[in-house]
Design a protein around this nucleic acid. Structure first.
Lengths: 352, 352
DNA sequence: TTGAAAGCGCTAACAC
DNA sequence: GTGTTAGCGCTTTCAA
């Protein structure tokens, strides 16, 4: 059974490509090609794959990245541990990374000023080949600028301005915002309150623009008093909703530009004795866990975060391998969003 | 500058061990030892480390795992995408995995019955060297049993019974529950409602036992009507809190065995016109994002999830490398928890 | 305490 | 379409 190996070194437990090759009666190279979608005759591939299945072969990622000299270090930097969002992103990233010659690392940049960000970015640049930047960091001129200067490819998730020299993976926030506003209008709402996100995030501005456009197209005015500033936190949503509902002529619907603030609006409504959605309609954005840990659950916009993670790594890998070509095209990848209807929307109360 | 390499193959961007060795005037082997805490004269180590810093050398994890034949595949299997919790766990796991010869993969087992779990476990067993199992999977006899049968080391996070042949990393749920109950008692509460977690999870039972013990030690009775069943979801917390507050002689405090249900209790209280914490005290457990996306923010028990992730990988690696020793000691690693005081606790209203 | 040789499992390059 | 050769960057083993 145990054929004596020439090597003195200890072996890993797993099945190797050579064993598969032997069983399939081909060379290891052919197995490699068959497994990695290379050019192999269909018949040969069949035979190889049968051997693969029989032996339960899984490629050793370490070996393949080493051999391909394609070992790529990609860092995900996050600044606000917005739970659900990050978790989905990570899951998506990990799913890709564990099947690709990619070493994923994560860094947490907490409360850094511009100078600290610049320093952190410089240090990062020497350690990684590519960076994934979710909001809000992807809009930090300091962080992005330094990374770009170091010629490290950067992909911004869900936000970011392409003009900064980085690629973006995002949804169409403008149309998503417009669609959500239209959803509200279709339900008969005409006085709609809006809770903004952080005004330094471009996605936030795009959502607002979509909202405004929908209202205008429906022949509705945007009452400036019905637009309140938030910063994406639950707490900020509380204040904004409070102002909206204390208005002499309050809105019949509130469009919060993320779920946390939407959840906050529901809480404020309840404390004011309003039933949601009977007395007040509330919608959120992002479809994070905050949308479902409230009652009623929030109607919201779903972002395909896992797919965005996929796309981000793909873009990074492509860019990195193109290193020699001086022209590194910047990508702006827009993925489809989806309006998720739940229980927080109804027609406005009668008489309004 | 560019010494012509003998090799035709393209090179990776990074600094290699040979360059460091050359600069430090030692052999690559010495650099390896210096970097990996091997036996090197202090003076030599100094010199090597200087070169490392100067060049910005980072070991190529792929190469080192390959050479050490230590490449280890570890899978994290999750079943309930409980956002915040998972995200913290992943972050912790990734932090360790990216600096160790570990390939982390994740799998999502959604709504599987016992048979499906068994099948998935068998397939997993052929692909990985170790498994990390957060709740609720770590208490699934099917999943755990099959993995143990395949001699795959398993570490349960935050739950699990050691008797099942697996190692555990957890906090002391009993004492945490007791401590929280004592916190409530110290604030003067004597009628305390309890919302249970899933009764198939041992951690849940331990929290309850701690609660009961604290009450008994304080000479208080446990009113069975004040103990309601939940299943860790927000929705279940809604129902349980409703029952608690509809009671003829309602509790002045509610102890929910996780944050989601605690948040639900707050929502129910608000809709019944109660102020939290003035009229009702509510506490949660776990310190997930749900604890802070409510108002008032929940007093809760913090679990050191990142540290638990660390410990889990450590245990797995140790166990796997011990493969030859027939005796694989099972570990039960208990980490310290922390009671986090926020704004949802006050003394009971007067006259109660 | 340090170095030299060999090879971990895989794939790029180049034949055929 | 397939095989051969030569390493990827590191660490094991063994010798000095």
């Amino acid at each position: 059974m145990d054929k004596p190996k020439k090597s003195v070194r200890r072996k890993t437990s797993g099945v190797t490509i050579d064993e598969v090759a032997a069983l399939a009666g081909v060379s290891p190279m052919t197995v490699s090609r068959a497994v990695n979608q290379g050019n192999v005759r269909e018949e040969t591939r069949e035979r190889v794959m049968r051997a693969v299945r029989k032996l339960g072969y899984t490629p050793n990622v370490a070996a393949s990245s080493l051999a391909a000299a394609q070992h790529t270090r990609i860092a995900l930097i996050y600044a606000n541990p917005s739970g659900a969002y990050l978790s989905e992103l990570l899951v998506g990233l990990l799913r890709v990374a564990s099947n690709a010659p990619v070493q994923l690392t994560i860094d947490y940049w907490e409360n850094m000023d511009a100078e600290a960000e610049r320093k952190a970015a410089r240090s990062l640049a020497s350690r990684v080949d590519g960076v994934i930047l979710p909001p809000p960091l992807c809009e930090s001129a300091a962080a992005v600028g330094e990374l770009v200067k170091a010629r490290i490819p950067v992909v911004a998730i869900a936000s970011g301005r392409q003009g900064d020299g980085i690629s973006c993976v995002r949804i169409d926030d403008f149309h998503a915002g417009k669609e959500m506003a239209e959803h509200l209008i279709q339900h008969g709402h005409t006085r709609i309150g809006f809770i903004c996100g952080r005004d330094d995030l471009s996605a936030s501005a795009r959502r607002y623009d979509g909202f405004v456009t929908a209202l205008h197209e429906a022949g509705l005015e945007v009452d400036p008093e019905l637009v309140q500033r938030g910063n994406y936190t639950y707490r900020s949503g509380l204040g904004a909703a409070e102002l909206l509902l204390a208005h002499g002529n309050p809105p019949t619907a509130i469009f919060a530009s993320n779920d946390d603030m939407g959840a906050a609006a529901i809480s404020v409504a309840h404390r004011r004795g309003l039933d949601v959605p009977r007395d007040l309609t509330v919608v959120g954005f992002d479809d994070t866990s905050a949308a479902t840990t409230v009652w009623p659950e929030l109607t919201t916009i779903h972002q395909p975060i896992a797919a965005m993670a996929d796309a981000a790594i793909d873009i990074l890998l492509r860019t990195i391998r193109n290193r020699n070509d001086e022209a590194r095209p910047l990508t702006d990848h827009v993925l489809p969003h989806r309006l998720v209807e739940r229980d927080s929307v109804a027609r406005p109360p009668r008489g309004r």
